[in-house]
Design a protein around this nucleic acid. Sequence first.
DNA 1: GCAATATTTAGATAGTTGTCTAATTATCTG
DNA 2: CAGATAATTAGACAACTATCTAAATATTGC
Lengths: 94, 94
Amino acid sequence: MKQQEVFKAMADPTRRAILKRLQGGALTAGEIGAAFDMTAASLSHHFAVLKQADLVRTERRGQFIVYSLNSTVVEDLARMLFDLFPGKPGAGDK
Amino acid sequence: MKQQEVFKAMADPTRRAILKRLQGGALTAGEIGAAFDMTAASLSHHFAVLKQADLVRTERRGQFIVYSLNSTVVEDLARMLFDLFPGKPGAGDK
DNA sequence: GCAATATTTAGATAGTTGTCTAATTATCTG
DNA sequence: CAGATAATTAGACAACTATCTAAATATTGC
């Protein structure tokens, strides 16, 4: 996992929202963009960052490009965080 | 959890290294700083960001200021991430 | 109270990032 | 092939961030 890229990608709220939208399944760039008040170019930039971090995968389908979550990397990140503190195995007294 | 602050805090490699150093237990600002090739002022800035994200706690002890990990928030963040993808409960085929 | 030590705050600056408009690439359809 | 649609790339710009030096604040011990 490219730790730095992943954390940087997650640091932006728009990108986290994109990931959230992808929870329900793969979507085209246009479908994702419909939910954001932002130009397609800006969204495309965010897609690029997410892709570089390996958080999403892409597949061209005709004139569309379909984005989907790469759950594996998100899981790795979460695991990494769980490892980031002392002895507590799975407690968590929120 | 202040999601945005936490993610922003985690996005910097120096700050992640600081958190890592704190895994072994509480340390003074100076003790932490000894491991970094950076002025105390710069480190102090990073401490402030970590504190604002509630990732660390501080306590003054004499002329020192002691920093310690706030495991709860790190746990919350990890949990949040685990929730960020579809149905997989705890699989993870790394 | 003064000097020494530990840390933070203030102000400046270079580099990074998010956004935009305009132009480009890729695909489909008539 | 020409036109339309989907998406990316290029270039510019304002806002943010990490770092530095210098100054300020807090605490200890003489």
